[in-house]
C-alpha cells in the first residue's frame, strides 16, 4: 500500500495525501460535514493545489466505485473476448439463499447450470477466478458468464432459499 499522510485541519476536517511513484502529489480533504475535495497538487509548486474538485456524497461513491472496480471490469472484458456470444450477469447472493455459506465446489454450479463464476466481489473487494474451495456468503456480488438461460438458472440458485 502507498503511504498515506494524514493532516488535521482544525475546524475544517482531515486531509489525506499520497505521493505517486511518478512523484505527483494527490490528496483527499474530508470535511467535517462529509463533503470531500479531491486535491491535485501543482508540479511546479508542490504546496499548492493546481486543481480542487468538490464532491458530494453520491459523487464520492461513484468515483470510488470507478476507481475500485476498474480491475474487475478489465478482467471481465478479457473474458468477453474469449467467449464471444455469451452474456455476463452480476448476481447478489441472497443472505437466506441455500448458496450462502457453501463453497462454489459444493454448489457444482458450472455442471448444473453451464454458467461460470469468474469473479466474486465481497465488501467492494474483487476476488478474481475463485476456486471450488471459495465459500460464498450472503451479500457477495457474483460475476458470472454463460448463456442467458444458464445465467437465469444460476441466479435462481444464488437467490432462492
Amino acid at each position: 500500500m502507498t503511504e498515506v499522510t494524514e493532516t488535521m485541519l482544525p475546524g475544517v476536517g482531515v486531509r489525506h495525501e499520497i505521493v505517486t511513484a511518478a512523484g505527483q502529489r494527490i490528496g483527499v480533504l474530508v470535511h467535517h460535514n462529509g463533503r470531500r475535495e479531491l486535491l491535485v497538487y501543482d508540479v511546479a509548486d508542490p504546496d499548492a493545489c493546481s486543481s480542487v474538485v468538490s464532491l458530494d456524497y453520491e459523487e464520492t461513491r461513484t468515483l470510488a466505485e470507478l476507481l475500485g472496480a476498474t480491475r474487475v471490469s478489465e478482467e471481465v472484458h478479457d473474458i468477453i473476448h474469449d467467449i464471444e456470444g455469451q452474456a455476463i450477469e452480476w448476481i447478489t447472493v441472497a443472505p437466506d439463499s441455500s448458496a450462502a455459506g457453501t463453497t462454489i465446489g459444493d454448489g457444482n454450479y458450472r455442471s448444473r447450470t453451464g454458467a461460470s463464476i469468474v469473479t466474486v466481489i465481497r465488501s467492494e473487494k474483487p476476488v478474481p477466478a475463485p476456486g471450488p474451495e471459495f465459500r460464498l456468503e450472503g451479500g457477495d456480488l457474483v460475476v458470472a458468464v454463460g448463456s442467458s438461460s444458464a445465467l437465469r438458472e444460476l441466479q435462481g440458485l444464488l437467490e432462492q432459499p
Binding site: 493532516t7 486531509r15 490528496g27 475535495e37 504546496d47 499548492a48
Partner: peptide, 23 residues
C-alpha cells in the same frame, strides 16, 4: 477561513500552519 475557501487553499500544504495559529 472564508478566504481559504474562496481561493481554494484549504488543501494547500501551508494551510495547517495557518489554522493551527488560529487555534
Amino acid at each position: 477561513s472564508k478566504s481559504l475557501g474562496d481561493l481554494s487553499r484549504l488543501g494547500n500544504r501551508e494551510t495547517p500552519s495557518v489554522l493551527n495559529l488560529l487555534v
